Amino acid sequence: MPVFADVDTGVDDAMALAYLFASPDAHVVGIASTAGNVPVAQVSINNLGLLELFGIDDVPVSEGAPVPLSIPLRTAEDTHGPEGLGYARLPETDRSLTPYDAAHAWVAAAREYPGELLGLVTGPLTNLALALRLEPALPRLLRRLVIMGGAFDYRGNTTPVAEWNTHVDPEAAAEVFAVWGAAWGLSTPTHLPIVLGLNLTENVAMTPSILGRLAAAAGSPSAQLSVLDDRGTPSAAANPLIRVLEDAMRFYFEFHFDQGEGYLAHLHDPLAAAVALDPDLVRYQSATVDVELTGTLTRGMTVADWRGHWGREHNAHIGVEVDPAAFFERFIERVGPFARGVGHR
């Protein structure tokens, strides 16, 4: 299945890309770099470096807008590290970006694969909003859209009520949901975007033991990461992909630990990648979604009208239930063997 991935890479975005390239049912036809976890230029460097690490050729990477639609950019180096991938270092590469931007890349991919393309967004919705302005028919050209963002009847991770991706560019998120509501209000519900918020993704927590299982599946076992380790202890894994993932995840574990959540890390974006390929991994409930733009305390909050108070058609399938064990089993059985081939492609 052709997949177009819009990412703000990002530790968990990197793991989402690894999952896509490890999946035999996915054909990644393009990557869009979005400003979010780190500035867009660094996101592009990360995406190109990951392709070099994976040994993947002929996948275009397009750079998106450097700032949100209406507000200054806010980034999250405290969460993902100064370059976005924690302690990890990617190989140098002479790969280059496309001459066209991410919004045009979205439109080109959708036109090339009409009715087939799977769209995945794991960062702010800036690029997608700009693409919809270029091509209002984009919703009808996609087979499926999966968005990681929002928090539904659940606490935020950036403000008390707002999730990071939506908070970075709430105007873009509001615009995307408005367009999808208009495009699919009277159409079949299977065309609605699948939205995975914190209420779902925070159930999917990577731990050192699960990361150890991944390393073993790659044939590259190493010392299991521990909260007792010195901060920044480098991975001893022989496999280059496992080494990058362990060094990235160590930073991510440390961040979550410092937030009082334990020595673990939520894999928001890899879950979204998995759902893009197989929606049956998650149970959904349809609703009308909008984004608060003017509230003094609630700006960036995603609001779901579950009971139809607004009198508007549904514009999203909201993920409400997932089996984390089933997800991790699939993640390991795909990424483990893929990692074995890294350095040999």
Rank of each mutant, 00 (worst) to 15 (best):
G232Q: 11
D58Y: 02
R231W: 02
P60E: 03
H314Q: 12
V291D: 07
S70D: 15
A65Y: 00
R213N: 11
A172C: 01
A182H: 14
V320E: 13
N157L: 01
T298S: 09
Q259N: 06
N315G: 07
P82H: 13
R334D: 00
L90G: 03
G64L: 03
A237Q: 01
I332V: 15
R283H: 14
S62I: 06
L142R: 13
N315M: 03
L50E: 00
V146P: 06
P124M: 12
G36D: 12
T34L: 13
D6M: 09
L73Q: 15
D6P: 00
L90F: 07
F338M: 12
W184R: 08
L228R: 13
L118H: 15
E171I: 05
P60K: 00
N46I: 11
G336I: 04
L69V: 14
T190E: 15
L138M: 11
M15Q: 12
P24S: 08
V342N: 05
L53A: 06
Q285W: 05
R345F: 12
I194A: 01
L277M: 11
T190P: 02
P193A: 00
H104N: 04
R243I: 04
E171S: 03
T98Q: 08
V179I: 15
H314E: 10
R140P: 02
R312L: 11
M1V: 01
P193L: 00
V121K: 14
A236H: 02
L73D: 13
R74G: 01
H80M: 09
P82N: 08
D101R: 02
T188D: 12
D229S: 00
L120Y: 10
S286R: 15
A304Q: 05
A105P: 04
T190K: 15
T302G: 03
F338S: 13
L225G: 06
L192A: 04
M301Q: 15
A237K: 04
G212A: 11
A102N: 11
F251Q: 08
I71R: 14
L200E: 09
S44D: 10
L117I: 10
V204L: 11
L281P: 04
L125T: 06
E83A: 13
L141I: 00
T93R: 08
A183R: 09
W164R: 12
A162I: 06
E313A: 14
D58Q: 06
A304W: 03
A174I: 04
H191M: 09
S220Q: 09
V121M: 13
A174E: 12
L51E: 01
M1N: 02
L267Q: 10
D290R: 15
D280W: 07
A238P: 05
A108S: 12
I56C: 07
M206W: 15
V195W: 09
T298N: 03
M249T: 13
M1Q: 06
A14C: 11
P234R: 09
F255G: 04
